[in-house]
Simulated assay, not measured.
Amino acid sequence: MKRVVVDHYGGPEVLQVVEEEAPRPGPGEVRVRVLASGVSFTDALIRAGTYLGGPKPPFTPGYELVGIVEELGPGCRRLRVGDRVGALTVWGANAERVCVPEKYAVAVPDDLDPAEVVSLVFPYMTAYQMLHRAARVERGETVLMHGAAGRVGTAVLELGALAGLRMFGTASAGDLAAVERLGAVAIDYRNEDFVSRVRQLTDGGVDVVLDGIGGLVSLRSFRALRRGNPVTGDPGGRLVMMGNYATLAQGHKSWRGWLEWYPATAVTAAWGLLSPRRRALGYRVQKLRIDHQDWFEQDFAQLLEYLRRGEIHPVVAERLPLAEVRHAHELLEQTAATGKLVLVPERGEGTG
């Protein structure tokens, strides 16, 4: 089989495709023949060595996959050979065959497009859980999403509309129209002050900010929150921090970004702990999955239902063979507003 390998941190040029024997599943694992695996900005962070808790080289990237179970390891009883499943791997998915823990595999209907479902496993799951598990939004609340034209951002805007939220989104000038088409108020993050803008458009600030950039953006996002009133029991606005894209620059690790991200994030977290009027929360999809696999399964079922009803529209920007993984990583910056990049088996490969 073929799999992608990163033998040292760096840009897209460090990605290699190797050929080797297929792995055998260990106790509690199933081997999955991969039908589709994703390529995301988080994969770029892992590849560059800026992802907190990420693997050390050599490793295989790939945060999520959809595939077919073809072998059961000792102790596996829930799944059967031939079942179609999705899995949040965090890394390791960019291969033709992958062993995953049976307990973390979720059932995927056979009649759905695997490349579309991959978006539900990670980008849409992140968006749904930030809104409903972390921020615990209520109908009518106001939400600001940073990077609203990206994969997670567009998922947040779609799911926010379904939840009856009033949405705001920051984006570059070229992506503002895409944000507005999804029903959000678009804010040009280069030419507009998002703090001033949301304060003008709301009653002193938004109820929720979703921030995957971090660093100095998180500091300013906290200021964009609506202040609560401890006397009346109103906790005020909530900032959900879920990423550190500020530590990546042109596909490589940014030391300047790191030096800004750490202290700024720490200060923001401290403000959230000390302030009686606003809160700062952290969210990581893989951490919540480990602690609450039942939530992951429930939320995935809800996303599948939305997909079947045509209420969400995961867009696949390109389907590329595994051998073109480097090109897929190079396309990441160019396709932020056009959908998900998905690696699929080459014709005649990964199908036996």
Rank of each mutant, 00 (worst) to 15 (best):
D299F: 13
Q293R: 15
V100D: 06
Q302Y: 09
D291G: 12
L288C: 05
L304G: 07
R197P: 14
R278V: 00
K56Y: 08
H329S: 09
V98C: 06
G147C: 13
V90T: 06
R139A: 12
V118E: 09
V6M: 07
V156H: 10
V240I: 11
R278Q: 00
V18H: 03
V143R: 00
V267P: 01
E29L: 04
L225H: 05
V118S: 07
A115D: 05
F300H: 08
M125I: 00
H132T: 14
W295C: 00
D291A: 12
F122L: 15
G183K: 02
V143S: 04
F41V: 01
A134T: 05
A149K: 04
V6I: 13
T89D: 13
Y189W: 01
W255P: 00
G75E: 04
V18Q: 02
L239I: 11
L225W: 07
A184P: 12
G67V: 00
R33V: 00
Y124E: 03
I213F: 06
Y51D: 04
A224T: 14
L165K: 03
P74G: 12
R227A: 11
W258K: 02
G233P: 01
H292S: 10
H8S: 11
G282F: 02
R133K: 03
P314V: 14
R77S: 12
P55Y: 14
C76L: 05
T154K: 02
A155R: 05
V209A: 13
Q16V: 07
A95F: 00
S196Q: 03
E349V: 03
Q16W: 01
L165Q: 05
L112R: 04
T50A: 15
H8C: 11
P58V: 00
A186M: 15
E260A: 08
R139P: 10
A127D: 05
E19R: 00
V208F: 06
G54K: 02
V108S: 13
P235L: 09
A269L: 09
R226G: 12
V156M: 09
E260P: 01
D175V: 05
W261V: 10
R77Q: 10
N244L: 15
L88W: 13
V217E: 10
P109Q: 08
G215H: 10
Y9P: 04
A36K: 06
I312M: 08
N191T: 01
L332A: 15
A22F: 07
V100T: 04
V342F: 05
H132E: 14
I68S: 07
R31L: 04
A186P: 15
E305G: 02
V240D: 12
L259A: 14
S119Q: 12
E333P: 05
G282Q: 02
R289M: 07
E297L: 09
S196L: 03
D203R: 08
